Simulated assay, not measured.
Amino acid sequence: MRAPIGDFDDARPALDCLDLLTAPVAAAVRAWRGTVPADRILYVDTDPAIADTAVFVEHYGQRLLDESANCVIVAGRRGETTTLAACVVRSGTRVDVNGVVRRELGSRKVRFAPVETATGDTGMEYGGITPLGLPADWPVLVDAAVVDTEWVLVGSGRRRGKLILPGKAFAELPGAVVLEGLGLAPEPQTG
């Protein structure tokens, strides 16, 4: 089947591709109970060499900046307590770590989690982290713009392959908190 977004000729229900997903992502797809039917979570095969956003959109088209999302793992700290959370924003934006995220987590300081923490605690590959299949006690902060997008391309848990699902499904993820202004416009480039 043809994908609803992007130039992907071979989109398949993720339920038919569980062996191509990491264990936590496959388990999340298998257990999906949202109002969006599980068979609308699609898998498309992509080259792992171009998994990073800038290279990916250069290859598949700039329009995917508005139809794809990045999932980044952050660590919020207050005193001796560290809270890990996922932030999901459109690929053409950056996460408001020092504003929206810090306030939502009640943290004094928030930083991007080290790669070893992000991959080790999620069971996913760096460059493919997705909000499906994250640890159950993690908040999943989702920018409202992602939820308002008809179809969204996001990581599959691996650098190879992506998932495509309706934006409204992100609001139904375990631990999801939909926030206005989580994704900020990129900072202007100075020459």
Rank of each mutant, 00 (worst) to 15 (best):
M1N: 07
A3Q: 03
A3N: 07
F8Y: 11
A11G: 10
P13V: 12
A14T: 09
A14Q: 10
L15K: 08
L18Y: 08
L18D: 08
L18E: 12
L21G: 05
T22G: 02
P24H: 09
V25Y: 01
A26Q: 11
A27M: 03
A28R: 11
A28Q: 10
A28G: 11
V29T: 05
R30E: 15
A31F: 07
W32H: 06
G34V: 09
V36A: 01
I41C: 05
L42M: 04
L42W: 04
T46K: 01
P48G: 05
A49I: 01
A49F: 00
V55L: 13
E58D: 15
E58H: 14
H59W: 03
Y60V: 02
S68M: 08
S68E: 05
C71H: 01
I73P: 00
V74E: 11
A75Q: 08
R77G: 00
R78F: 02
R78K: 14
G79P: 11
E80Y: 12
T83E: 12
L84M: 13
C87E: 06
C87P: 04
V89K: 06
R90D: 03
R90E: 03
S91D: 08
D96S: 03
D96T: 00
V97F: 04
G99F: 01
R102H: 08
E104K: 09
L105V: 01
G106A: 10
P114R: 12
A118M: 09
D121R: 15
D121A: 15
M124L: 07
M124H: 08
E125S: 04
E125A: 09
E125W: 04
I129Y: 03
T130A: 13
P131E: 02
G133L: 05
L134T: 09
P139C: 00
V140G: 02
L141M: 09
V142Q: 07
A144P: 01
A144L: 02
D148V: 00
T149I: 04
G157I: 09
R159Q: 14
R160T: 11
L163D: 04
L165G: 12
P166Y: 06
P166N: 04
K168L: 13
A169D: 07
E172C: 06
P174T: 02
G175W: 13
L179S: 07
E180W: 00
E180G: 02
L184G: 02
A185K: 09
P186I: 00
Q189F: 13
G191A: 15
